[in-house]
Design a protein around this nucleic acid. Sequence first.
DNA 1: TTATGTGAAGCGGTTCACAGCC
DNA 2: GGCTGTGAACCGCTTCACATAA
Lengths: 206, 206
Amino acid sequence: MEKRKVSDLVIARLPVYLRYLGRMSIEGRQITSSQELGEKLEISPAQIRKDLSQFGEFGKQGTGYNIDFLINNIQTILNINKVWDVALIGIGDIGHALANYKGFNDRGFKIAMLFDNNPDKIGKQISKFMIKNVADLKKEISASKIKIAMLSVPSHVAQGLADELVEAGVKAILNYAPTILNVPQDVHVQYIDPTIHLQIMTYYME
Amino acid sequence: MEKRKVSDLVIARLPVYLRYLGRMSIEGRQITSSQELGEKLEISPAQIRKDLSQFGEFGKQGTGYNIDFLINNIQTILNINKVWDVALIGIGDIGHALANYKGFNDRGFKIAMLFDNNPDKIGKQISKFMIKNVADLKKEISASKIKIAMLSVPSHVAQGLADELVEAGVKAILNYAPTILNVPQDVHVQYIDPTIHLQIMTYYME
DNA sequence: TTATGTGAAGCGGTTCACAGCC
DNA sequence: GGCTGTGAACCGCTTCACATAA
């Protein structure tokens, strides 16, 4: 299955479609349309059709899209048919919240390994898993073959830990530290920084 | 001061510039260039120059940009010269992490009011503030004139609370619930959903 | 009739390349 | 000489509008 070049913008919308389709499915809905999805998600129907059409013909003309069928296909496209194990580095307040977060379940991810550098935390249990010593990060992650990590550590140690993650074979990092990470081309990074979202909004305010 | 129409994409980059400039300033740096910023932020120098030029001429030809001067100007553009009070709705794990988060300080925001619906939590103290009853949300926020809220509540109550926030005069909502909010045109919403970021990355993985 | 899938058109954002200024 | 600011060129994304299929 060769991968045609699809825009990052398209890929970023697929999870949004999927999230809403999942809700519809739970509500027992069977069919939807680009029209309905567009209204709910505030995206043009043409956009949605064009996005989906890049990966196949998932709809039926005159009818619309079968919700469960579409869910299945988007999951396949996004590679989340399987469940990915995720390592969590830094068990402060944010790390704690992520470890307990229910929103990964049934969306393709499971936190499987926790790390911290604080001796008071190492060995403690959170959400079924024992917190490991970050000194063992490289060894443990290499051995476990985990490919995804979430970084919730102070900015000044984020790059160093990202380097270790890369050496351990991690290919995707979700970074909560407010700093840009340098990683090789084949490693993906996404950023979450609430302040940036707030600053975007204040631009439009009085 | 009339506001020319500037693309949302430009606005979304300004906080990223600002974050890095802030770091440089702390390190004692005085001058930078679009070249240097571009390398650090993985954005083309031409893009950075064009973005900034939409708001004024902040640089000196042959020299570059004075960092503190540029910081000041971007802060003014983004409306974060003053400190904005923010209300936090939902003091679960995420709310707790946000209440304790140090990353708002000196970047334009201060959490000033906390709400929850859990009687065990109402009246408790977190991070200098007492948790108020969410039943009083509208009254309290209207009275305080707070314009920004962060929503860290379960999805099924997010829309209802967003409606109340809007009625109370809130103009910006940072939504941690994995659901799209319906709000009037003059109210801004930004979303944080870690699962979506993870799903974007798995697309590119084997 | 209804709603998808899709070339073509339109629009907007990014990059280029250089004039202008320090 | 060096770097910004900026029209112009370029590129890519979004929207349009309709042929197609149910």
